[in-house]
Design a protein around this nucleic acid. Sequence first.
DNA 1: CCGTTTCGTAAGCCATGACTTACCGTAAGG
DNA 2: CCTTACGGTAAGTCATGGCTTACGAAACGG
Lengths: 110, 110
Amino acid sequence: MAYETALTVLADPTRRQVFERLRHGPCPVHAIAKGMPVSRPAVSQHLKVLKDAGLVEERSEGARRIYSLRREGLAELRDWLDSFWDDALLAFKIEAERTHRHAKGQGDGE
Amino acid sequence: MAYETALTVLADPTRRQVFERLRHGPCPVHAIAKGMPVSRPAVSQHLKVLKDAGLVEERSEGARRIYSLRREGLAELRDWLDSFWDDALLAFKIEAERTHRHAKGQGDGE
DNA sequence: CCGTTTCGTAAGCCATGACTTACCGTAAGG
DNA sequence: CCTTACGGTAAGTCATGGCTTACGAAACGG
């Protein structure tokens, strides 16, 4: 799953709350919904989105669906963030070069 | 700035595009807007949001405002992501304990 | 000085998506 | 069986927020 998906999905506060609720460990839907400011169907909808994004996984246990965290779903987002630090040095180098030949006239880029 | 802010702000595709545009280096507004699917005012609005979130910074240079990346703005989000890996071991340990005394009756949590 | 470039802000429109209630299956249990 | 717990899905409402056009203000250039 692309980092864009994780970003979009985790942007919603309620959905993030659902997600964080699963840090403690696997949990059935009704238990997640309890202590949450929204209705149970709303939680179900959030869980579906989280599952489609690969951020949680679901297993059936009789009548209940037990949801649990999928930390690998965060991997791509983490990598994306890391990539910014990677090219920090690169950007610095480029800017240093530019400064050297103090090109002022066409410095706007693009 | 809290990680929630970075998450919310970077969730929008267009705004993310603006943000990524600055990876190459500082850039005035009109240059960012060029080659973007939206109008210049839209870009300005995105830049304001990004600035308020501490993800970019702005410096005046004559009539133009030069925007540049602020990688520190991503730090909290990175830490938040990292924290999930931190408690992965912890959760594993807890679950292991639970399995040991095979507590079945009150396993639902909460 | 007047026109042009650069940019921010205001107002208004409209699509997206989060939430609700209502309903329908399935499993457990008397 | 019939009832109750559990949970997914549908339909409809409504607020959030991203986009546009229009305008105003500051610097630059002839």
